[in-house]
Write a protein that binds this DNA or RNA. Structure first.
Length: 201
DNA sequence: ATACGGATTGTCT
DNA sequence: GACAATCCGTATA
């Protein structure tokens, strides 16, 4: 089903699992690519989640996290990668769900071109890879995911899922204190867990 | 104005 | 398993 905006206006930790099995589509003049999500991570807001971009309050970058649910929060990181989030929670709050991985279910030829050299399994397996496969640029941050060129369909019946520590989050936001990484067991689109370089102590 | 490090990935060992 | 790539956002002065 294509959910109404209220569907996204809830705690990101609750929304995350509901996005597993959902299909996100993006249209460009090159065509449509759709990805079925198999892994996500929840981030909460101001003062409550040290791993969140919104932890220290509103800034130019994270402003869209404070806006309406169901919009796209895209950010640039490591000097070269774009990652995508679905904004959750309600206006004035700030929370989002990071799309960490999935499998391409439509437009696989276009996705292969965008991810030249990657195996089919790796096309959208990982947050930055997923953004490339879908062809979503950083400039799309703030876009409403409920209207074209995006489409988001979720399952009527939520899938069983597993939860664990978030990947790549260092410091107080990492580790078992925030087990807000959610994935569908056995799905090929689940990324390899790589402990953050700085979590070795 | 400057310094630091990152919600990652690909390549090499 | 280890490391480089690469540049923007944020904090500090």
């Amino acid at each position: 089903m294509r959910p109404a905006r209220e569907f996204f206006a809830r705690d990101s930790v609750d929304l995350g699992p509901l996005l597993l099995g959902a299909v996100i589509s993006h249209d460009t003049d090159e065509g449509r690519v759709s990805v079925r999500l198999s892994e996500v991570e929840a981030y909460r807001g101001v003062g409550e989640d040290p791993g969140s971009h919104a932890f220290r309050g509103r800034t130019p970058r994270n402003t869209v996290m404070f806006g309406a649910a169901g919009h796209l929060y895209a950010y640039f990181t490591y000097g070269m990668h774009v990652c995508l989030n679905v904004v959750a929670s309600e206006p004035g709050h700030s929370a989002a769900v990071l799309l960490r991985g999935g499998t391409v279910v439509e437009g696989i030829e276009l996705a292969r071109r965008r991810r030249a050299g990657a195996s089919d399994r790796d096309l959208a397996r990982g947050p930055a890879r997923l953004a490339v496969a879908l062809g979503v640029p950083l400039s799309a941050s703030g876009a409403d995911l409920l209207v074209p060129p995006f489409e988001l369909r979720v399952l009527e019946q939520p899938l069983p899922f597993e939860a664990g520590p978030r990947t790549g989050v260092s410091g107080a936001g990492g580790g078992a204190a925030f087990p807000w990484r959610f994935w569908v067991a056995g799905e090929p689109g689940v990324s390899v867990y790589r402990r953050h370089a700085r979590s070795h102590d």
